[in-house]
Design a binder for these strands. Sequence first.
DNA 1: ATAAACCTTCACATAGATGTCAGAGTCAAT
DNA 2: ATTGACTCTGACATCTATGTGAAGGTTTAT
Lengths: 122, 122
Amino acid sequence: MKISQLSQLTGVSIRSLRYYEQQGLISADRESNGYRTYHPLVIDQVNTIKFYLNLGFTTEQIAGFLNCVVMNKEAFCSQILPIYREKLTEIEEQIQLLSQIKSNLEDRIQAVMLENPNPPGA
Amino acid sequence: MKISQLSQLTGVSIRSLRYYEQQGLISADRESNGYRTYHPLVIDQVNTIKFYLNLGFTTEQIAGFLNCVVMNKEAFCSQILPIYREKLTEIEEQIQLLSQIKSNLEDRIQAVMLENPNPPGA
DNA sequence: ATAAACCTTCACATAGATGTCAGAGTCAAT
DNA sequence: ATTGACTCTGACATCTATGTGAAGGTTTAT
């Protein structure tokens, strides 16, 4: 299939598909005219990439384990565990930071409301 | 005081101090030679800026309410409440998104461990 | 053959705070 | 007067995925 079709089927922009290829995440054959031709399996692959991008991995990180994930469905791929765990820790730290910020913000709101019992927008 | 002193006292780089000035967050008098001279009150102001940057506000947003905060200690500044609330909502959304990502990640980890009962790094 | 709808590559833009460097002026101390 | 430590402005780099546009080749249908 051609690139616009892959784009439609995956919901990923043409621009991004070419970018993924440039980053080594997907590959494409070329027709004689230079057009990219994709194997149907690439659809799954792109969806997998979407999934990991949503998880907060960068394309570079994804490139590091995508083959493993795609080929083996994660079995026999225990190398991926530390990566997941590292990411998990990172996410947890972000959540903690945001929670702290949230607390601070709630404190500020309380402070304003106490000093200003009848604000217009309350 | 001069800029390097302010930098030391606040822990904010000289580069950033100049940037804050450019964004209208702080102001400086100039000596006859062109050097910036800061009023001691600016120290507090810079610390306040640090605080709000940590809260995730942009310098542009901070510029919008900094005068109010610094001058009035937030009293009589009920206009600031909607801004805080908006930011709070934003933070809460980020936390929720991260929590979902965290769940997904934990699922992946479970999946790998089930398919791979005795991984080297476990 | 001409237009519409594809495809290609290359490259610049974005967002935001900060690092860093270059070129140049200034001040203090020797 | 020279050196070292400051200061100034201006500008480019960073990080990352994606948007956008130009300039040009291809295919398909009329």
